[in-house]
């Protein structure tokens, strides 16, 4: 009831709720962009401080898109970008050691390294979209929202990312 009376995000609880819902994906977006976790976290802080400063002007429903807009502005040219280094999860689902031959394991390892390299070599735009989908399991619609582009543009980036990576992996066999 109170939230409806004063429709902004200055309420401590409202603000915290927005943080717990959105902070992680914003952090990851920054990370996929910069390749640096410290910088990503600093940028998360900056984005939420901006939201807090303008909390009176931002209605609850607009908070998310406000954050994304701020995040996109922050990421424009603030940091010198680094290589995005990702880690594979240690336990891989649905695969038991026994079923795999040493040869297969070897091949798999090689492929993983190649994939990492291919991701690093993607353009920033393709990489952020691709990783938000693969790692954060965001739908194309959500990614479009985060990147402030159309769903079609997201699809295009995914397509290009796949084609580009496939080419690189196959050609450097």
């Amino acid at each position: 009831m109170e939230k409806q009376l004063v429709d902004n995000v200055c309420e401590e609880q409202v603000f915290e709720g927005i943080y717990s819902k959105n902070s992680e994906v914003i952090n990851n977006y920054f990370f996929y962009k910069f390749g640096n976790q410290v910088m990503a976290e600093e940028s998360v802080q900056e984005a939420f401080i901006k939201l807090w400063e303008n909390c009176k002007k931002v209605p609850f429903a607009k908070a998310k898109s406000y954050l994304y807009t701020v995040a996109n502005n922050i990421s424009l040219n603030k940091y010198k970008h680094q290589k995005v280094v990702l880690k594979y999860a240690k336990t891989e689902p649905q695969q038991t050691e026994d079923l795999q031959s040493p040869e297969y394991k070897m091949e798999e390892k090689e492929f993983k390294v190649k994939l990492e390299k291919a991701i690093q070599d993607l353009s920033e735009k393709q990489r952020t979209a691709f990783l938000l989908h693969r790692i954060d399991n965001r739908s194309y619609k959500e990614i479009a929202e985060i990147l402030n582009i159309s769903v079609k543009a997201v699809e295009k980036r995914m397509q290009k990312a796949l084609e580009g990576m496939r080419k690189q992996i196959d050609e450097f066999k």
């Binding site: 902070s23 952090n27 990851n28 990370f31 976790q37 976290e41 993983k112 790692i135």
Partner: peptide, 15 residues
Amino acid sequence: IKMYSAHFQKPEFKK
């Protein structure tokens, strides 16, 4: 690519 790219860990975010 589709399979292994789903195996990456999320960045460690100290929420």
